[in-house]
Amino acid sequence: MAPKTVPPTARQRRLGRELRRLREQTDMTATEAGAFLGASQGRMSNIETGRYAVSADRVRTLAHHYRCTDQGLIEALAGMTGGRTRGWWEEYREVLPHQMLDIAELEYHAAGFRIAANFYVPGLLQTAQYARAVFAAYVPSFPPHEVEHRVSHRLKRQAVLYGEKPTPLTAILHEAALHMEVGGPAVMYEQLEYLIEMSERGDVTLLLTPFGAGALPNSGQPFDYLEGAVTQLDTVLLDTDHGSEIIDAEAKLATYRAIWDRMASGALGPESSRRSIRRIAQGLKERT
């Protein structure tokens, strides 16, 4: 029996797309680029789809051959080489959808997070009980063992917020998310207390959008904006009913940056947001 083929990760595919974009900007064909490297057109195709690993030196060589002068971008792309990252998420490869592993790897390499959430607390800031209640509400329902796998995976993703060099995170939460009693009053109270605790850290900023802020920009779609080593390598993650969607086209990234700025302009500042969360938490405490 032939060994099982493991598809390239989102990070590997992104590297390939960026190399193809640089090549296409020079109107060079894959055959011409391959000839420069001493590789076939097929090998170049596999490099540009992330199916074949490429070394940092080859990335630098190709980038200069494509007349790219952005040294920051070149070094960022070189830093994405080396094949699949053997991170903690690999232990979930046989039990969870590959998209969830891609998200964990992208978050692991992110330089910063900008998150917009309207009806649920963002995954990177959820408690175990809150996450369990979220997954238990999915339709169709997950079997109990899969719920636990997903909760465990979600909590391990939060490691990026801890350690010696935590990744900075700014989250805009709509007030509606804090009034939805996911898991019941006791679970929600614990969740709000955790948000307050996290907001008091220097690397986590919470901004609350009050009900009185009016309409949300566009459709109000929640999203995670992951900052790359350079702006060109930023990524947007959308969590939909049909799975996660990964967006990295520059025009769309610019749109989401504008949406983020509009949402931030209508949100309360960090101190006012923390006071509002405390007030809502106190109301829940009185009922538990």
Rank of each mutant, 00 (worst) to 15 (best):
P168Q: 03
T170W: 08
A171P: 08
I172N: 07
I172Y: 01
H174R: 07
E175W: 04
A176T: 15
A177V: 08
H179R: 13
H179A: 09
E181H: 11
E181W: 11
G184Y: 04
G184I: 07
P185H: 00
P185G: 05
P185I: 03
M188V: 05
M188C: 04
Y189A: 10
Y189L: 12
L192I: 02
L192V: 01
Y194N: 14
Y194W: 08
I196Q: 11
M198A: 14
E200C: 01
R201E: 10
G202I: 14
G202C: 02
D203N: 15
L206T: 04
G212E: 14
A213N: 07
A213P: 00
A215Y: 00
L216F: 15
L216M: 14
P217H: 09
S219K: 13
Q221V: 06
F223Y: 01
D224L: 14
Y225R: 07
Y225E: 04
L226G: 05
E227K: 00
G228M: 10
V230R: 05
Q232A: 11
Q232W: 11
L233T: 01
D234Q: 06
V236Y: 01
V236M: 03
L238G: 05
T240K: 09
D241H: 00
G243V: 10
S244H: 08
S244Q: 07
S244A: 15
I246V: 13
I247C: 02
I247H: 00
E250G: 06
A251V: 09
K252S: 12
T255Q: 13
Y256F: 14
A258D: 09
A258E: 12
W260S: 04
D261P: 00
D261N: 01
D261R: 01
A264T: 10
A264F: 02
S265R: 10
G266C: 12
L268E: 03
G269D: 14
P270I: 09
E271Y: 09
E271S: 11
S273R: 03
R274M: 08
R275A: 15
